[in-house]
Design a protein around this nucleic acid. Structure first.
Length: 259
DNA sequence: ATGCCCTATGCTATAGGA
């Protein structure tokens, strides 16, 4: 089973680009972030025509997440469980009913800038709620993955110029500590499990010629429970799509599981 | 120090992103 995650930065503006990638990548499941639209105007038929069922958790203008799946979905849940007061659409999860079922959680973690301020407070609070859910999911002892735009640069080797990010919400010590608290519950960072090289990124800013200079950061991640990590066969970043016409500032990342 | 670029929005700007 191939499961991909992709922050599309507006699904309506990105639709031709996403379909081009989808027809090339042929994932079984896609976790989308920043769809930037309500459920009513999500272009679902474009995906249904390609054999995907579509579940969205959108909001007007910003944020928004979705799951596309070629397998049936069960246990669908919108919003981070235990965080019911959060009105921002940043979490959707479901059980993918494949020969080996996989539980997938699609997340769009808050950016947190500027620092200090209410947005950074919101980010850290969200990460604590996320950690609570991550702990619950581990205790189920199922094959589960948590994937999406984490807005976290875990280590210096995950940025071309880490010194540029030292005071940024994506890289501050408190952000990275919170990331490690989640990881250290017992999750595997799928990309790092497969690839120890540096200079592999999932985001390049639209500004300052970041793509042309490979001035990127690795902020889109797959975290796997031990049962899911046992199924891991591959994890790749589809960096080439960043060079296509009208790209998102993020590129897709995917895992291949023996499921 | 700030904007650069991009998407969405009752839109001749503004907010948010990272």
């Amino acid at each position: 089973m191939k499961v991909a995650s992709y922050n599309v930065n507006g699904i309506r503006a990105r639709l031709p680009h996403v379909l081009r990638w989808l027809d090339e990548c042929l994932p079984d499941v896609v976790l989308l972030q920043e769809i930037k639209c309500t459920d009513e105007i999500f272009p679902r038929s474009e995906f249904e025509n390609r054999g995907y069922s579509v579940e969205t958790h959108g909001e007007k203008q910003r944020n928004g997440v979705a799951i596309l799946s070629r397998f049936p979905l069960e246990d669908l849940s919108r919003g981070l469980p235990g965080n019911n007061e959060d009105i921002q659409a940043r979490w959707i999860e479901a059980l993918v009913v494949a020969p080996r079922p996989i539980r997938v959680c699609c997340l769009y973690l808050p950016n947190g800038n500027p620092v200090p301020g209410s947005k950074y407070d919101y980010k850290l609070e969200w990460m604590e709620k996320f950690r609570g859910r991550a702990k619950e999911l581990l205790e189920l002892e199922e094959s589960t993955l948590l994937a999406g735009d984490f807005n976290v640069i875990p280590q210096p080797e995950d940025a071309m110029s880490p010194e540029d990010w030292e005071s940024d919400a994506l890289y501050l010590p408190e952000t990275r500590e919170s990331w490690r608290r989640i990881l250290n519950l017992g999750y595997t960072d799928a990309f790092r499990a497969m690839d120890q090289t540096s200079m592999s990124f999932t985001f390049w800013d639209f500004q300052r010629g970041a793509w042309e200079r490979n001035n990127g950061i690795r902020i889109d991640h797959f975290l796997l429970t031990p049962q899911c990590a046992d199924l891991l066969q591959d994890c790749q970043i589809d960096r080439h799509v960043r060079g296509w016409e009208k790209p998102s500032d993020h590129v897709p990342i995917w895992v291949k599981l023996d499921a």
